[in-house]
Design a protein around this nucleic acid. Structure first.
Length: 481
DNA sequence: CGTCTTTGACCTGCGC
DNA sequence: GCGCAGGTCAAAGACG
């Protein structure tokens, strides 16, 4: 069993934030992006003295998180509230190059250890995870698939997905099918295979070409299409112009939205050339202290190792939010992710609401509520907050990450994310799942990003080779690019 | 000088 | 068909 030494150094976070560094203003190399918020001493100690341990430093932009040191879980993301002042494209910074390099190495090692751990246990049940944790340490690059938990690959056909769904899921309502059908046209277009953004304008363009009367194909892909169009929105209070979610973003447009005096900013992921992921940032018209960040699309590049944990978490979260009780027993019981999600679902379903206002399925993480009333005064770790609130409070420090890692591995191996089994009636297009989560806004931002990636990652999986051919992904996110 | 932001123009979908 | 709104592009300027 992995142990997760506690290093929830809010002070460390604070320290980094206050550390002046020229490198902070440099756009980091992707591989060196630091998503962990950990103190140098802690990381080194963990790796050199306890190589078998995974040390994941929680991210936290707040300064009053000393109590979190008592917690044993870490989101693994260095998610700071961006405060660039000019909506500059950003990535988590606040660290010197040396620290970033060291931490990157550490992260790599941690991920490698975790993955190897999962290699030995991925078929075991979660209960069997309380075994040895001493695993060889072999630094290796994190495959991009960790976040690409989208639809099964071509080998895992849509039929399989459908059969794995509950019988109810096969009953699609006409509206969702219509909407999904529209989106489907995009999917079938090669240029959109990597485009999770789904330009509506292209939908109609491809309608004719794909209206071949193949109802089955449409049905099978309807849910996929719906999911691919899914967006993840985060509502969080932040004075910063944009939440830092661990990715680099470049602003490509700004528009005044009707009914909102605050402009809406459009960002595009620049961590990799041609990454179709985009996000919109806008302040709430009613309460301008609330920052609404909407993510759409799936990354076509490796995300920082720290996001491994995010992937696991978001897998569970998305599974919880999207698949709900319609998950098949097979998926729900055998998939650790779903098990995690199910557990959370049972306890947090009260936080979820459904609306039909969104044009596409939207997961809204409402983080505007205070977390203190739910989690108590000693836990500001967003992940643990989420877990605790979702019924995982009884997990020990190592239990949760282990489960998450297990879920992650499962998803990696199976290319089968429970969210992918979202029955169409479970989350029709136009529905919005709203989960009020008291958590760190930055965590939520990353969470949303990962959820979006997961949900929309199906596009990459549709092409069986897409995962290993990132370079083939063209810059098709734009209409005229 | 290269990169990024700004911002007006353009494109598209949708409702009337 | 027209107008509106959302989304995107790309030239120009700013910045390091």
């Amino acid at each position: 069993m992995f142990r997760f030494p506690v290093s929830l150094g809010g002070q460390g976070d604070n320290l980094k934030q206050t550390q002046p560094s020229d490198e902070q203003h440099h756009r980091p190399i992707m591989d060196e992006v630091d998503f962990f918020r950990s103190e140098k001493r802690d990381d080194q100690n963990v790796i050199t003295e306890e190589t078998h341990r995974l040390h994941v430093k929680r991210e936290n932009s707040r300064v009053d998180d000393d109590d979190d040191r008592s917690m044993g879980i870490n989101t693994g993301l260095n998610l700071l509230t961006a405060n660039t002042g000019s909506d500059e494209s950003l990535v988590d910074d606040g660290l010197s190059v040396d620290m970033e390099e060291k931490r990157t190495k550490i992260e790599m090692q941690l991920v490698a250890v975790m993955r190897q751990e999962e290699d030995h246990h991925h078929l075991a049940t979660i209960e069997s995870k309380d075994k040895d944790t001493n695993r060889h340490e072999a630094p290796e690059m994190v495959p991009r698939q960790f976040i690409d938990l989208g639809l099964p690959s071509a080998e895992v056909s849509s039929d399989e997905r459908i059969t794995s769904r509950s019988p109810q899921s096969l009953l699609e309502d006409s509206s969702s099918r219509q909407r999904a059908k529209r989106v489907l046209e995009i999917e079938e277009s090669p240029e959109n295979e990597s485009n999770g953004w789904g330009n509506p304008s292209k939908v109609s363009k491809h309608n004719a070409s794909s209206s071949n009367g193949n109802g089955n194909a449409i049905d099978q892909s309807a849910a996929e299409a719906t999911m691919r169009k899914a967006r993840v929105s985060v509502r969080a209070r932040s004075e910063a112009p944009m939440l830092s979610d661990g990715c680099q973003w470049r602003k490509y447009g700004q528009k005044m939205a009707k009914g909102n005096p605050c402009p809406r900013a459009y960002y595009r992921c620049t961590m990799a050339v041609g990454c179709p992921v985009r996000k919109q940032v806008q302040r709430c018209a009613d309460d301008r202290s609330i920052l609404i960040t909407t993510y759409e699309g799936n990354h076509n590049h490796p995300l920082p190792p720290a996001a491994m944990y995010m992937a696991s978490t978001t897998t569970a979260a998305a599974s919880m939010l999207l698949s709900g009780s319609t998950m098949s027993n097979q998926d729900g019981l055998m998939n650790p992710t779903n098990l995690f999600a199910r557990t959370m679902l049972t306890c947090s379903s009260s936080m979820a609401t459904i609306s039909a206002s969104a044009p596409f399925p939207t997961i809204t993480l409402d983080l505007t509520e205070s977390a203190s009333d739910v989690n108590g005064p000693t836990n500001n770790n967003p992940l643990m907050q989420f877990a605790q609130r979702s019924g995982f409070a009884e997990l020990n420090q190592s239990g949760l990450p282990q489960m998450m890692g297990q879920a992650l591995y499962y998803n990696q191996q199976q290319s089968k994310f429970s969210g992918l089994h979202i029955p169409s009636q479970s989350l029709n297009a136009g529905e919005s799942v709203n989960a009020a989560m008291p958590a760190n806004p930055n965590f939520a931002a990353a969470l949303a990003a990962a959820i979006t990636s997961i949900i929309n990652g199906s596009s990459n999986h549709q092409n069986g080779s897409s995962n290993s051919s990132n370079n083939n992904v063209t810059t098709s996110s734009g209409d005229r690019q």
